[in-house]
Design a protein around this nucleic acid. Structure first.
Lengths: 220, 220
DNA sequence: TAATATTTTTAGCTTTGTCTAAATTTAATT
DNA sequence: AATTAAATTTAGACAAAGCTAAAAATATTA
């Protein structure tokens, strides 16, 4: 089936919200999409008619299987374009998201398949998020929040869960990127901040808030 | 200034029509855009308000300098994306146009500049049409219709003026592409068709209609 | 449980871009 | 020049996607 840009944006946002909460409610979707609750209700009716979600008045909603597949298609397109922008066009990782927001709505199966191949069928986007394949299958990776890693273990940064421009700028400042190797030297009880040592750099301190949003895996 | 997708499509179509005729009229634009004359009139008012064209009721219209620059920006984006699709994603040249129709409306100066650089600042798209630079400057090439070339001269195909899928499929059948070298062996008075010899192929005959739309330059 | 607060929906309006049908203007023809 | 034909514009309607304000349903609290 084919969707409008607006429908796709709603589907995608619902998908992301229900990943965390299971059921989604009108106000949180309105907040996520920077629109009004009334607009959300209108769109929910449309998406229900198209049989993309379970929804009853006043009761909350969630995507059904068809809806989830539609969402994963958009996510796939978004992340492939992000990869293209960062890897081929050399955009900084904090700039790719907003452009990919537009590119993701171009609908051509063949385009996306060719793009995927051209990029070498990548599994993760520039923020470390997994890129679903054309069937909606999502690659998995063993990763933990940096805030849960014991001292002295060497880990590799694999993704970042807060992708605001502010966060990404901050990581750029610390010279932390995907693939960066580091170890945790010390955890300060006072505010939960961590002293870390990034390979080939001098030790530095990051806040608990940053650490919680940086995901890593052990170097094998 | 920023334009909607619809505005950009109108601007682009007006630009192409006025290249040939100077002044454009409502019905021909409606035909070009596959819409109704009334819709064209509505949009003309909008574009006039935005000071993109000269227009007086019942008198025809043409883009002014601002409008032309806006058109060239869209043309530039379209042709760069076409180049990307053909050159990097290996699309057949008869398939790139319809996808580029969507990509051309994504507005990011930086995206297009980086794409341009990534592609090696190409001067011509996969159909041989010139790609304007960011200032709207269009590269020129000395070319003539194949139907005007004298016998026995070796020429190189540089562009195709009819870019319908039908035409492009036909050229694919003849194995004629941009850069193909060929010579005209004979011109048949009866229907104006040409016997040509494509390098490394046996001679064949093409209709006058095809020949008129194939543009070539002499091999230096 | 009754009163209050919050959330969600409905009703009705707005803008963009399209359409049809009718009116108007310009062009062509007798 | 008068009539007919063609081109163009206007008027009014519609769908999509948004909004505000008010109503309705659900949750919370005294």
């Amino acid at each position: 089936m084919n969707f409008t840009t607006s429908e796709e944006n709603y589907i995608k946002s619902i998908y992301h919200l229900q990943q965390e909460t299971g059921m989604v409610n009108t106000n949180s979707l309105a907040a996520e999409m920077q629109t009004r609750a009334a607009s959300v209700t209108d769109m929910l009716k449309k998406l229900k008619t198209k049989k993309l979600l379970q929804y009853e008045r006043y009761k909350g909603f969630r995507l059904n299987e068809t809806g989830k597949k539609a969402a994963l298609d958009v996510v796939r397109k978004h992340r492939l374009w992000e990869y293209f922008l960062a890897e081929k066009l050399k955009f900084d990782w904090d700039k790719v998201h907003s452009i990919a927001e537009h590119l993701e709505h171009i609908s051509s199966e063949e385009l996306i398949q060719r793009l995927d191949n051209f990029l070498g069928n990548p599994s993760f986007d520039p923020h470390g998020d997994p890129i679903p394949d054309k069937h909606g299958k999502i690659p998995v990776i063993n990763q933990q929040s940096l805030s849960d890693i014991p001292l002295k273990k060497t880990v590799t940064v694999s993704s970042v869960s807060n992708q605001t421009v502010q966060m990404l700028e901050m990581l750029k400042h610390y010279e932390i990127a995907l693939g960066t190797q580091l170890t945790v030297l010390k955890k300060f009880e006072f505010d939960g901040s961590l002293e870390i040592k990034v390979i080939k750099q001098s030790a530095c301190i990051i806040s608990e808030q940053v650490a919680k949003n940086v995901f890593v895996h052990y170097v094998q």
